[in-house]
């Protein structure tokens, strides 16, 4: 920081002091937030690392002892872990991709002047504002119930409608309620992308004789790329951690067919009281996330700085 302020000639004693004081006065406001974030988010992870090398069951006091990498061996030889990892990928990818496609479609529909546009926009963002726990509960009961649910009531009009959605298709049910929740988020991002398109560019395209489809593919889509990337990445960060819907709708079941990693970890820690293995599971999840996030962060960061130049 101080190097940037260094002029060509060597500093006098007084100037050095002034530079240092200025540096500190810039840094001090940063510290409370930074220290707080480090203590609450980084310190616990060090504990997780430590616990992951211990065998420790909470219901058996005094059982804590060092076991080295045994917990990790158990994680990787555990078929439920593999199932949970696969489900996490399916839920995240399924939700983010479908929500993004729907979001793009809705954003395109909203990017025109029509009567009641503000009202429709308000209606469309509401699913994102519903408490996720409440939303999941509603989808499980009033929407997906085989006998009294709305989904089957609608399907019965077409001669179908006897499916027990949550029991027969637990993953699809969970993903549906997640897509419903996350589509507004994608829509809002894409919509602000569409609206930041300079009108002159669109006019120029139509002057050059491009039809609407050509304009969309050649002009709009490249412009939207940054917004779509951002939506996919931010969406994925949140959806990977999905817990509420699984807890409320399926409890990971039937069996382990809809268990994802956060829910499995919760089961190991709070139903099995196996602190050591839950911690090892946590470390594995973090390592996986870091690998994905390193790539993701680069792209996001590019987006952020690009946004500031624009």
């Amino acid at each position: 920081m101080t190097t940037l302020a260094t002029p060509m000639r060597p500093l006098t004693q007084v100037e050095k002091k002034a530079v240092r004081r200025e540096g500190w006065s810039r840094r001090v406001p940063l510290l409370p937030g930074l220290i707080f974030a480090i203590i609450v988010t980084q310190l616990p992870f060090l504990f997780t690392l430590f616990y992951s090398l211990q065998s420790w069951n909470l219901v058996r006091p005094g059982s804590q002892h060092f076991v080295g990498l045994e917990n990790y061996v158990r994680v990787f030889t555990d078929s439920t872990f593999r199932q949970a990892a696969l489900n996490t990928i399916l839920i995240t990818a399924g939700c983010v991709i479908v929500a993004m496609l729907l979001g793009i479609g809705l954003a395109l529909l909203l990017d025109r002047a029509f009567p009641g546009r503000a009202v429709v926009r308000t209606l469309l963002i509401t699913p994102f504002l519903i408490m996720p726990v409440a939303g999941a509960l509603l989808w499980k009961t009033t929407m997906f119930d085989p006998t009294f649910g709305l989904v089957n009531a609608v399907l019965r009009l077409f001669g179908a409608g006897s499916t027990a959605w949550v029991a027969q298709f637990p993953l699809t049910s969970v993903i549906t309620s997640l897509v419903w929740q996350w589509t507004p988020f994608m829509m809002l991002l894409v919509l602000s992308g569409l609206q930041s398109q300079p009108a002159e560019v669109l006019e120029a395209a139509s002057v050059d004789g491009a039809n609407r489809w050509q304009t969309f593919v050649l002009v709009t889509l490249p412009h939207l790329r940054r917004y779509i990337e951002l939506g996919v990445l931010l969406g994925a960060i949140y959806v990977v951690n999905t817990f509420d819907q699984i807890y409320m709708m399926t409890q990971g079941g039937p069996g382990t067919s809809s268990t994802n990693l956060p829910f499995y970890l919760y089961q190991r820690a709070f139903l099995g009281f196996d602190i050591g293995q839950a911690a090892a599971l946590g470390v594995v999840v973090v390592v996986g996330t870091i690998i994905v996030a390193t790539v993701a962060l680069r792209v996001i960061f590019k987006s952020f700085t690009a946004g500031e130049e624009a």
């Binding site: 992870f45 951690n241 956060p262 820690a269 602190i275 996330t289 962060l297």
Partner: peptide
């Protein structure tokens, strides 16, 4: 921003303890 990417599940065990 990286703290936002740390899965909450990864810190729940020590937080509980």
């Amino acid at each position: 921003i990286s703290t936002k990417m740390l899965p909450v599940a990864a810190v729940i065990v020590p937080l509980y303890v």
